[in-house]
Design a protein around this nucleic acid. Structure first.
Lengths: 343, 343
DNA sequence: ATGAAAGCGCTAACAC
DNA sequence: GTGTTAGCGCTTTCAT
């Protein structure tokens, strides 16, 4: 089967069909075509039919760029997340996109990698596209970013954290509360020694600190910490446990991990060393990812409803598009400590 | 601390600053501002300085919508993937975005959920934004989608599969080869009975069929199959093994799973039932996700370099933007069967 | 119900 | 090196 794929030299941008041409074919003016598309009820049925025929014949595709320029409305939402490969962010994004798409909005995506400078650059670039709203992850942003955002005058939703002083509105939960809840749980479960394993994520650090202070206070034992300047992986979790053991970790210590990835790594390393969980080492994860209930033993973890998070964020924006009254600025979706076998 | 978050009623779209206003402030015309931004070398140093001052003073943010309309270049790339929450797609997307971002392009994202109709709608919507190129997952698309794409006259890259007849170009591997390779491996490893566990993904189905035909031929035993009309999850993997056992699966059967999620579920269910892997049941996964090497026993899986996939796709587009000569249409990045302990 | 005119904020010629 | 003039393909407003 001799096949020639499309000759690159023949690529011409756009079919070149405009509303005006569709109009000529249908025997109406360009404006009428515009009306037929945006409010079909305002053109006569016969005209509408002729226009639809002309559109079908020409394969006309509306130019949303021109539309956005003329109407000052892009139907575009900018979404900035640390990482799309991390399920906790991608699942939130999925729920968010679903709702926004249902309301006729498209998503422009950027990854910021937990880096405020990258975030600022991405914000600048995205704002030049005149999005109708923007979603940011976290409540910490560079000064420049805040200024641009305020200036843009569009709805902004910050997710994964709560703040008394959001740029516009925020949807998340208190990381300090989460760290303290983990510490209280650990104390009440009878653990007297604890350590933390933390990735390079400002919110994880706040959970770690809240955990360490609370646990330290209630147990009167210092809390050791292993910190990585990288994202959480299973391999680093294994490494962290090895490191803690080398440092002479007490048997029966509970480990507060900044992510379930770390926690699973700890489980695997413990197993490889013949340690019993939770007797020799107990583990608390974070995120309650799908596999958390399936590990052996099953992981105790802090559950965030990422679907709800994305949905509430989307709805907050949709509300802002239509609202005249003042709106709720802070949405605390909470978290839940799910106790299983690992701690 | 009394805090008032931004009053929604005060939200005004855009700061309203245009190139013309920046120009007035700097004492030059609007075009000169345009030049200062796009080719600073073409304006005198003093003028440039005055313009930059004016930009800083006003907080001017370029309007890329107007720019795109005037230049017929959007610097936007549309990317359509089945799901962002699936690491195999999100990691490809990550590598792809990284390179495109480096070349000054932004990503508009949509999820299609393995649904050709949803894909067609998403393509139509994205094309109205006049993206400079589009990335699609898979080589099967609706007739309408193909027509629109051809009409749009922009570079198109189809990923995760190869085809002799790509719309424009494709980057992937042969799913038939992958299924056959798994079958050959299983035969040569000494297995005489096999079954498949498959999610609702057209490419997974092609791997399954290729596996079943090849294994059937070489073993002279029929290959049982469990098919789900859903995405692969660990839980469904457990369920699949239970189902196969109820159906009287032969001890020592090798299971070819369409994803590592399924395979991990099989491992867990086997463990729960006290079955030994690979003696009582052997498992081959697909995707070689991070956890594959870490399970107990470690998973034998088919590895795709998703990073390379995304990079090759991005580079294929970048090449197309600058090329006059004819370009490579088919990029086969291959796959690798990684043998570990599970089969 | 339909059309004419203006203009959204830029870039791309082409002058000077 | 800088300015002038024309659009890009729509939406908006105002007539008819």
């Amino acid at each position: 089967m001799a096949h020639r794929s499309r000759d690159p030299a023949q690529i011409r941008r756009g079919s070149g069909v405009t509303m005006a041409e569709v109009g000529r074919l249908a025997g109406v003016s360009q404006v009428t075509v515009s009306r037929a598309l945006s409010s079909p009820g305002k053109v006569s049925p016969e005209t509408l039919q002729r226009i639809q025929d002309a559109i079908a014949r020409t394969g006309y595709v509306p130019n949303a760029v021109a539309g956005a320029l003329a109407s000052n409305k892009s139907n575009l939402i900018a979404a900035l997340v640390p990482s799309v490969t991390n399920i906790v962010y991608s699942s939130m994004l999925h729920a968010f996109s679903d709702i926004m798409w249902g309301h006729g909005y498209q998503i422009m995506l950027s990854e910021t990698g937990f880096d405020l400078d990258r975030e600022e650059k991405a914000i600048a670039t995205h704002l030049s596209r005149r999005p109708d709203a923007i979603l940011l992850t976290g409540t910490r942003h560079s000064a420049g970013a805040r200024r641009m955002l305020l200036n843009a005058g569009i709805p902004v939703v910050e997710v994964w954290d709560v703040s008394d002083t959001p740029i516009d509105c925020c949807v998340g939960f208190s990381h300090v509360d989460a760290g303290q809840a983990a510490a209280d749980f650990a104390i009440e479960a009878g653990y007297s020694h604890a350590a933390t394993i933390t990735a390079s994520d400002e919110r994880a650090v706040r959970r770690r600190d809240a955990f360490a202070v609370r646990f330290g206070k209630r147990s009167n034992h210092p809390v050791a910490s292993v910190d990585f300047s990288a994202s959480a992986t299973l391999g680093l979790g294994r490494q962290a446990l090895s490191q803690l053991i080398e440092q002479g970790m007490e048997p029966g210590t509970v480990l507060f991990c900044s992510s379930d990835q770390f926690a699973q790594g700890v489980l695997i390393e413990a197993n490889a060393r013949g340690l019993s969980v939770p007797r020799d080492v107990a583990v608390i994860g974070f995120g309650d990812q799908e596999f958390a209930a399936m590990t052996e033993p099953a992981l105790t973890s802090i559950r965030i409803d990422r679907q709800i998070l994305g949905q509430v964020a989307a709805n907050a924006l949709v509300d802002r598009f239509s609202a005249s009254a003042s709106l709720q600025a802070v949405h605390d979706v909470g978290f839940e400590l799910v106790r299983r076998a690992s701690a």
